[in-house]
Every structure is written in structure tokens, then in C-alpha cells.
Amino acid sequence: MIIDSIQNGIVIDHITAGKAMELYRILGLDKLDCTVAILKNVASSKLGRKDIIKIDREMDLDWDLIGYVDPTITVNCIRNGQLVEKRTLKLPERITGVLTCKNPRCITSVEQELPQEFVLTDPARRVYRCRYCETQSK
């Protein structure tokens, strides 16, 4: 299968196989009107199998969010057919508006206008806790 290379845009590479659709949804890529290619289960010497997303447009992405979904991802920014930036990601210290606290005793359960913020408390175990009540995200 051949997918054309892009001239100006972003290639999100080394996505853990099976996670591309989750990333597509969380990043809101369904709202774009440019070409977006999702490649699943691509052979990879590093990962065995991987997913790739190609976006045929330059745009700002929420790096923290991508790092949260899959910190092994690399992001390549392409301009005029050339690689101009390659980013490796890490787990973000804080994520906002992605996870929801499930603790019925949390203040966010009654004051729903509060931003849902989670803080990385244990990088080795990828543990995020609600900023307000410290309940672990599920």
C-alpha cells in the first residue's frame, strides 16, 4: 500500500499499534478538512508493528496530550517536502480537559465548570492523579 509523502504537514510516527484511532479522536483530527491518513499495523523494526498518522497541513498540536496517549511517539514536521523538526515526546506533568475524575466525593463532581486537571505523580507507573482530590485516573 502506498501513501503519498506530504509537502507541508505533520507525520505522527511510532504510535503503539492500535492507538491511532484514540489519538485521532482525542486530537480532534476528525474536524480537519485536509487530508488525514491513518496507517495501522505498519511493519516497524523498532516496535514490530506501529500506527502512523499523516496530516496534510501544518498545525499546532497539543504535545502534552500526545505524550499522554503514547510517550513513544515521534512527531515529524514537514515543510516544502523537507523534515524541519523531529520531536520525541514524554509524559506530560499535567493534563487538562482529557480525563474526568470519577470520585463522587471530588469537588469537580458538583462544580462542573472547574477544569478537569490531572497531575503526573508516578512516572514509572504512569500514574496521574486528580489535582483536587488526588484520586488516580482510571
Binding site: N103, R105, C106, I107, T108, S109, V110, E111, L114, C130, R131, Y132, C133, E134, T135
Partner: peptide, 10 residues
């Protein structure tokens, strides 16, 4: 004092 956890932080 508040019954909801995180209220004093808010």
C-alpha cells in the same frame, strides 16, 4: 471545612 475533596484548594 467542606465535604467535597479539593474544595479548599479551589
Amino acid at each position: 471545612r467542606h465535604p467535597k475533596e479539593g474544595a479548599p484548594l479551589v
